[in-house]
Design a binder for these strands. Sequence first.
DNA 1: CCCAGTGTCGCCTGTTATAC
DNA 2: GTATAACAGGCGACACTGGG
Length: 290
Amino acid sequence: MEAFLMVAKTKSFSRSAELLNVVQSTVTVRIQQLERKLGKKLFIRKTRSVELTDHGKILLPYIERVMELIKEGEQATISYGRYSERLTIGGLYSVWNSAFYSIIQKYRQKYPQVAIRLMTNHSDEINLKIKDGLFDAGLVCIPPMDPAFETVPLYQETLELVKSPSLSLEKTMVSSKDLLSLPYIHLDWGPPFTEWFIQEVGQQELMGFSVDDAGTLLRALQLGEGIGFVLHQTVLEQIQNGTLERVPFYSNQPIPKRTIFLVYPKRKQHHPALQQWISYLLEEIKIFAY
DNA sequence: CCCAGTGTCGCCTGTTATAC
DNA sequence: GTATAACAGGCGACACTGGG
């Protein structure tokens, strides 16, 4: 698997061998064994380079997940003993960079014996990693359809249009129809937003500049590159200190709110730290949400 | 009788040399 | 740059032995 990943990455048997500290023929044999086992060619050998076949392309993400799982296992083994328990939670950028973070902060103070890893990712990726056992739980905006998951709606977030004060617009009030003619920076905020956006503005493909994470969007907005929708909670600080300002906005239908879900595997018994964290979170969220 | 230590055998994996 | 053949070394399975 190591050889497969390396050849897929470097597109060379020789280079892979060098990086893996083995000779080139070892890589050849390893790949051949894998190909023989699967009964499928994984690489197209060309005179100067190597390329993944369609079968190889299918296999690649699975091998990547397995290798990640092994790395995770190694890390857990090495660090075992320093903390009595550990939790790995996947979350959206907008979740960690909002007032919600105070819940994590309080949890850490209350349970210092639990080692915590907060991982930032997109909803789909988080759901996949929970399924693989890489994450214990996740905070996502797109809940998994899989019945093997437990999904609990936690709270709702509001989106608003903002820009840097350094960027001046001709209009003081912006409508959904105006977005196409403005330096609008697009981020897909999940299914309800997408549906609303298509109805109000048009296809997302019409957008000249789009990003796929809230961190990049925020940076672009702060640099005065354009206007964009961001979560109210995420930009509270920036609006207070004047690095960003709200743009008055109107549309036919109001911008849909975004629901954040707690997701974890459906099991009779969870490990104690996860059980405790879920109970703690559900208790704290009552205070947070109101 | 059980268990730990040791020796043997065969298989697997990696290396070197070389062909393509 | 990749594939193949011959070879070497390492490792696991198994059997045997001796001490507690």
